[in-house]
Design a protein around this nucleic acid. Structure first.
Lengths: 213, 213, 213, 213
DNA sequence: TATGAATGAGAGTTCATTCAT
DNA sequence: AATGAATGAACTCTCATTCAT
């Protein structure tokens, strides 16, 4: 491995450390409230050093979001493509999949859900922004393909897959956001996963043609 | 009408204008991103003038949030108390009710849903904050009472009403937030209401004991 | 009395009311901390109305100071000119005289003593400023004439009268300011007069030639 | 010397420079009138830079005051503890000591004497404020111990030491404030020290038991 | 005469970012 | 590679003052 290659890898490690630090700060202060100073502190750097690894604060935020979107996409596609499961069994897997996505980066997930997040990125290049949007769309299409197969096989009600995927995703984000909101009132509670599972169970009663499968 | 009464009413009108301006700015910049300067500009004022009508930026935000929470509470209570509807019919009314709440102030609804919102309020007095939280809790309890009656009459599955209300509300916020997120990618679309109705229809299948009513 | 004369007198009454209000505010907030809003409120006006009676905030402050200086001047001159008292007896009257001056307007007295007070008057006309200074000088010269007479009659040590007046005045302001400062730490105490009397008693031991008079 | 140690010292130097600048501004504008902008300008900075060295304007003011109070305390204690002087000789040293204190920081001394000063500090923490008050009290107690010894040895009239210290301090502040006030009228004059010495000489005649002593 | 309304001018403060070292 | 130092730009908020009514 060449010297520059090692350097490059070192750099990637540092980037990750910074991203982790950013996540922690965002978790308690939100996207807008997170400051370079606090991120740097958590990463054992001084603010100026961050600019060696990221062009701007916005690039840090974008990196975090993109990583989550990528993971989301992979999770949905990988679920959709599993050969060992029937469409109905894939349905059963959705709650776990969603929770995995949430747990992959709860902090960024929550921040991202807020539509205004986009407004945060003052200087974010249009290309980066487009990249972010594209990745999000790919994710949703991945989830949709789970339903598409079931409908194609006549196992599900012929709902438009994209619409169904949206509904599921809506429910998911709703559960998460609402649970988090309640946690704001009572920090001890954290029922995200059980609530989600229950809600999806109810939801799927209307989708599955023959409940006995 | 006395002079001072008219003056007071005038003042209320100006307050409303400022709140409207604030809403518009928040809609495009978020709570944190909204500046007094831009709010003032939209309201045809200079920033200093706003302080004749509101003590601080936080008071403006709190006013908007409280108004929405109040409306939400009223809507839920008024639905719960309707004598002309059976519990099942009230269930049918929930989507419309939810959408009315959302439409009452979509911008603030979205901002409020974002958990980090709390971080936004720098100097908000603990009393104001408590007032905000209390009103939010009252709202959810109002919705819960819709289910409580149905359970009491043996028409719904004996799910814990508060849990059910939470689930519905989760679904609702999820739908809204997700739809809004998608709108960020494609501003032309806006299916909030139809998606919500569909999702709730599916959801209620698991709640209603006897689907033939 | 002509209409305009009555009007003029009415105006003077209002001016006094405003000055009284200003005094109260200055007492708790200081010259710089006193706002037109608070002064107006205490005078049962709205801020804008004050400008009918005074050109500016600075004119209000200047009026208060001038009145005190005028009173101080009158007190000193009237003491100096009393025919019924010997110079020594006049000396005995000094503490009372000083305390009368202090009590005439403790608030403004304290504010005035602070040299920086002058910096407060941003827009004060040079004429007004000069007037203030001249009146203060006249006051001290009035006090000096008390000593001058005693020295002239050979009853006091031949100290330069102006220097002696300054020393007495210094002591006085010192007592007042220091006692007030201590009152800041312990609001219950207020020994201005007794401390002053004691201090002057000590001080005069070195001035009076023959203590048995 | 380690790098960080040098850095720390550099920082202290900068802090001093800023404090010096602040002193100059306060000297002409007073505590309240001094602005961060003007302080920065005098220190060859932009306002934002000051916040690297001080948390707030209030911290700057508090630093200046505390330094003076500390110096005052040290001066009094060191005078009281001198073994080479009799109580009477210590008395003779008081004028010089007081003048040293005054000269240590005339500007802050004057600002501090103004009772309203406390109103100036918007955000000063209660702890800082308490620290300021405690240090002031310690100073006066230090001066009092000078008299206590003389009374204990029967050389001074048995005046309550604390009262005596207050009186001396009153005289001192009075002299200073009055002289400064006069300097406002005639900037050329500055007799603080000679007036003080004269005044104290007269004052002590009533304290020292045996004047030939 | 009195004032509601509005504002210009500034104050203190924060923070992402740059740059010499 | 890392950072101390510095700052421009922006933000919230205050207040003396003006002016139409």
């Amino acid at each position: 491995m060449g010297l520059s290659a090692r350097r490059e890898r070192e750099k990637q490690v540092r980037r990750q450390e910074i991203l982790d630090a950013a996540r922690r700060v965002i978790g308690s202060k939100g996207f807008r409230g997170a400051t370079m100073e606090e991120i740097a502190e958590k990463a054992d750097y001084k603010p100026a050093a961050l600019y060696r690894y990221f062009e701007s604060k916005d690039e840090i935020l974008a990196s975090l979001i993109l990583a989550l979107e990528q993971y989301q996409f992979e999770q949905f596609v990988s679920l959709a493509e599993r050969q060992d499961l029937t469409p109905l069994q894939k349905l059963d897997e959705i709650p776990d999949t969603l929770c995995r996505i949430y747990r992959f980066d709860p902090v960024v997930f929550l921040g991202m859900m807020h539509i205004q997040a986009s407004q945060t990125f003052h200087y974010m290049s249009p290309e980066t922004l487009a990249q972010l949007n594209e990745m999000a769309a790919k994710g949703i299409r991945g989830l949709a393909s789970v339903f598409a197969k079931g409908i194609e096989l006549g196992m599900f009600e012929p709902v438009e897959p994209l619409v169904m995927a949206d509904t599921v995703w809506s429910l998911f984000t709703g559960v998460v956001l609402w649970e988090e909101t309640k946690r704001f009132f009572d920090p001890k509670k954290n029922f995200v996963e059980s609530t989600l599972r229950e809600a999806l169970r109810l939801l799927f009663k209307g989708v599955i043609k023959d409940q006995d499968g």
